[in-house]
Structure formats: C-alpha cells, structure tokens
Amino acid sequence: MIVDAFYAAPALLILALGVYTTFVRDTFPATVGFLAYGLLLTVAWVQLHGVDVALTEAAIGGGLTGLLLVRASAKLRATEAGARAQRPSLALRLAAAVLCGCVTLALAITVLTLPDPAPSLAVEALAHIAPTGVGNPITAVLMAYRAMDTLLESIVLLLALVGVWSLAPDRAWGGRPGPRYNADPDGILAFIARVLPPIGIIVGVYIFWVGADAPGGKFQGATIVAAMWLLTLMAGLSDVPPISRRWMRVLLVAGPAVFIAVGIVGVITTGTFLAYPDGWAKPLILVIEFALMPSLALTLGLVLAGAPERPAP
C-alpha cells in the first residue's frame, strides 16, 4: 500500500503536469510547469531503475531545456495574445481530441497487453560485458555494442549547432553568439555564478568519471559543465568566444573525430570498425570519453548560447 503510494505519486503528478503544461493559457507558467515536470521525471526514472537515465533527465530535461524555453517564452511574450486568436475551430479541436484519445487508448491497450515475461537483452548484455572492460552495462551498450549510435549522436548534436549557427544574420557570422549579459558584479547572481561553477565542474567530472562502472558518463557530466558555463555567462562573468575561433572549432570536432579515429584503430588492429583489440577496450573507451566530454560540453553550451548576433570586431 505504502509502496504503491510511493509509485503512484510521481506518476500521477507527471501526468497532471503534462496536462497543465499543455493546457494552461500563458506560456510562462507552461514552461515553469515543464521545469517541474522534468524534475519529477527524474524521480520517475529512479523508480524505474534507470539511474543513468535519471541523471540525463536531471541534467537535460529540467536544466538546459528549461533555460531554453523560459528565455524564449520571455522574448515571445508579446506575440501570445495575437497567437491565441488563431485557435482552430471547435470542430477541429474536437476531431483532434477524439483522435488523440484513440492514440492514448491504443497505447494503453498495448501497455496492458505487453508480453510477459518481457523480452530483454539484459542477459546478453551482461554475458558479453567482460571484454569491454566496463562495469556499467549501459556504458557497454553505448560505447561497445551500439557505439555507432553514440558516435552518430555526437554528430547529431554538432549538426544541431551548425543549424543554430546557420541562423546568424550574415553580418554577424563569425561573431559572438547571443546577447552579452551584464550583472552587478557584487550582486547575488554574480555571487552564485562564482560559487557554484567550481563545485559544479567537480561534480561534472566526477559524474563523467564514475560512468564506466556506475551510472553516469560523458554526456551527463558534459551537461553539468555546460550548465555551469552558462551560469557564468548569464551573470556576465564571461562571454562566449566568437565562433570563428579556430581552437573552438577544433575542440568542437575533436570528440567525434577521436571517436572515428579509435574506430579506425579497430580496423587496423582487429579488422573491424569500432571493435576494440583484446585488453584495450577500457583504455580506448576512456580515450573516446575523454575526447568527447569537452566537445559535448562546448557544443551544448554553444547550442544554448544561440546564433551569433554580435559581429566580430
């Protein structure tokens, strides 16, 4: 009974917040609702025994996505009233509601009739984990069994950054992204932006480091580091470098490039792309992760910093 309550509370709250976020009239409350939603999802992932996922959600869902959305909602506030007037007709809303209901119904039926016992690759994943040298099966999936997906994921992120940059006005190309934030150097924001990042960076590196054997990893660590960087940006303590900086470009591509290079090492030593030679799996995985972590942190930070707006001097 108690156990059920513990399980039910976040589940129902998440549903309620999802409804709130979707239906509340104004956008700002919706984004606040979404922030709460993201934080609660973290609890849900723990309940579902997905601690690695919980870490990712805590970092991305609430934190970075929250910043992205709230900034946009503040900027777009003036457009809201006009946009509301364009609500589709009642008939369309009704049709949409019925169809969405059908989708939910179909999915609910599917959930209730999922096969039992559930098919699972857990046994296989554990059976082959020894040669990868890592202790966390999720890391084994991400860095060995399905390393290709992870490589492509880092390219997806890079491509998103290219997309964000592509939105720069021509005159600002090569310049600095986003506005330059100023804040009172003795104010609260500046204070916390000085205190939090050192702690955050240590935590980020720690989360990255334990990833091989415990929940954690490069992505989660990188997100925390990126968030800390963004904090110092918001407090006006630092500025984004112009996107034309060569070192920055190199740092951005270093992660995926090293990943591919290690894949080619596999070709040379074992004859197979992305394979690790016997006994070398763990060091090579670490090499990839060490190269990816700064690239990911920088990419994430820059994606959030936005398109270049200020022409380089």
């Binding site: 390219i155 890079l158 491509l159 470009r249 951005l252 591509v253 490039a257 591919i260 894949g263 070709v267």
Partner: peptide, 22 residues
C-alpha cells in the same frame, strides 16, 4: 562490407574537417 561504414562516415568526416578548417 567495410565499404558500408566508409560510405556513411566519409561525408561526416568531411563535415568535421570542414568545420575545423573553416
């Protein structure tokens, strides 16, 4: 078979190189 990952990755390597060299 080795040509397949090559065909996928070569363009992406081009993206990385282009971005770095600029």
């Amino acid at each position: 078979g080795w040509l397949l990952p090559l065909a996928i990755l070569m363009p992406f390597v081009g993206v990385l190189a282009g971005l770095a060299l600029g």
